[in-house]
Nucleic acid binder design. Structure first.
Lengths: 193, 193
DNA sequence: CACCTAATTAGATATTTATCTAATTTCGGT
DNA sequence: ACCGAAATTAGATAAATATCTAATTAGGTG
């Protein structure tokens, strides 16, 4: 459920230590020991908090040797913030959709073959999102997908399923938990400006 | 401290019952009994959550007879959300300030007499904020003000101290706790577009 | 292989807090 | 001045969780 995701995210954020970590990471990646040192806490404690932050995709990590660098995941955080802003705005804004739709259609025609395969992943962010959303249309809301199942689905469009699957997560279209994937509610998707 | 405010706000938001209340209030004001009914919880429990939400100014209330209607305080919520977005954006954007300053100066000259009194409170939001910020300059960061003390300060500018004091809170320039007022860090202020 | 450092896991403790029931307060109407 | 409805307060209980120490796992390097 959508509300539930927000709850978990904000509960995670609403902790002094975790917010301090996020603040530190906003100035650049750090590894666990460094964080522990700066905060005067035990590595075990940092592991605990990073686990929490990872669970909501507020951070991601990159391994270098046996030290792991943690990065702030700005886009996910921004999306949660935006869904808070939506909540705070009681008025419903309806925009004119016709032009937007025409533009989307053109992008889809350019990037997909007539038999529905993706020619290549657009480099331009805006077009990439349109393409991703097009592929997402075949997935069911609320359904839980095994990673393998999702890979198979994506392969119908393009061989590089790993990249595309990652894009689904990065742009907040999907949510991963214990290797199980699920569509996010649309309010949480990365929006095209 | 700034981080601390954020922590308290997000901890408050990060609770299923409170987020559900906020969601309900986003569709219009409600009184306590109504909220309790819809959520299947005790009035005492609702009081508890509303107290929390009030502490961070996420809601405000209006009394009608002896029933109290609660409203969502959209602007405060949006400001916290924006400060999250700031955190998520690692790049620092510097803008050209010279034009902006000239405009502010003009507004201040128009709305204040030569001996520094406020002629009247601007109706236009943008100008109002400039005027409010001008008055705020005489307050000290980190200092805690009694309500009476703050009233006296505002009276130096204008007799209607109650309205102005309220504007300080609504626009997130100041923070109130147990009748004590304090300046918010500037990152949290209402920003002029 | 032996060793070192980083990270994680497991288990224990102490603090926080959401919720309830019961008592109390607040306000308007009769 | 009294009564009823709405809200708050007080106190109790149960659940969640931040942190620590100690043990374990992972990855590299001499």
């Amino acid at each position: 459920m959508q509300l539930n995701r927000l709850v978990i995210f904000y509960k995670t954020i609403g902790d002094p230590t975790r917010l301090r970590i996020m603040k530190m990471l906003s100035e650049g990646p750090l590894h666990g020991q460094a964080i522990a040192g700066k905060l005067g806490l035990t590595p075990a404690t940092i592991t605990h908090h990073l686990k929490r932050l990872r669970e909501v995709n507020a951070v991601y990590e990159r391994r270098d040797g046996n030290t792991i660098y943690f990065y702030l995941n700005g886009s996910v955080i921004k999306h949660y913030a935006k869904s808070l802003i939506n909540l705070a705005e009681q008025d419903e804004v309806k925009k004119d959709m016709t032009d937007v739709m025409a533009e989307r259609q053109k992008v889809i025609e350019n990037f997909f073959t007539t038999d529905g395969r993706l020619k290549n992943i657009p480099a331009q962010r805006k077009k990439k999102l349109i393409v991703l959303e097009h592929m997402l249309k075949g997935l069911q809301k609320g359904k839980k997908y095994e990673e393998k199942e999702l890979n198979e689905y994506i392969k119908k469009f393009h061989d590089d399923y790993a990249t595309i699957r990652r894009e689904f997560i990065i742009n907040n279209y999907m949510y991963r938990e214990n290797g199980i994937y699920e569509l996010n509610p649309e309010e949480m998707w990365t929006k095209i400006e």
